[in-house]
Amino acid sequence: MQCDWPLLGPLQWMRYVNKQVKVKAGKDEERRGWLLTVDPVSASLVLVDFGEEEEGGRRASVQVVMGHAVEQVEVLQEADEETTVRLQASFLPPETHSLDP
């Protein structure tokens, strides 16, 4: 992907979601991570990197690359189902239980 990232639009950005991507931004800087989402307003990418699992909780480091700085985005691999679920649940609020019977 060499063309102008911010101009791609939601349908094109969607094709990168849940994929492991390599993003070039700024001067020869390269970042990798699972693409959670692309902000349709600023074209910023949210990349999540799952670290080692720790007891009592999973830590993930998140990198947001600003859309205006993106030079190149390359897909490395697709996520398996477990990774997809884990990725998409990253920022969801904790489940609330309904009080209805």
Binding site: L11, W13, V17, T37, D39, P40, F91, L92
Partner: peptide, 21 residues
């Protein structure tokens, strides 16, 4: 394509806003 694109836009934006939050 408009409804499809609008849906994609809203899904992406919601996810981004949750990240900001």
């Amino acid at each position: 394509l408009l409804p499809t694109e609008q849906h994609a836009r809203s899904v992406l934006r919601e996810s981004f806003l949750r990240c900001l939050l």
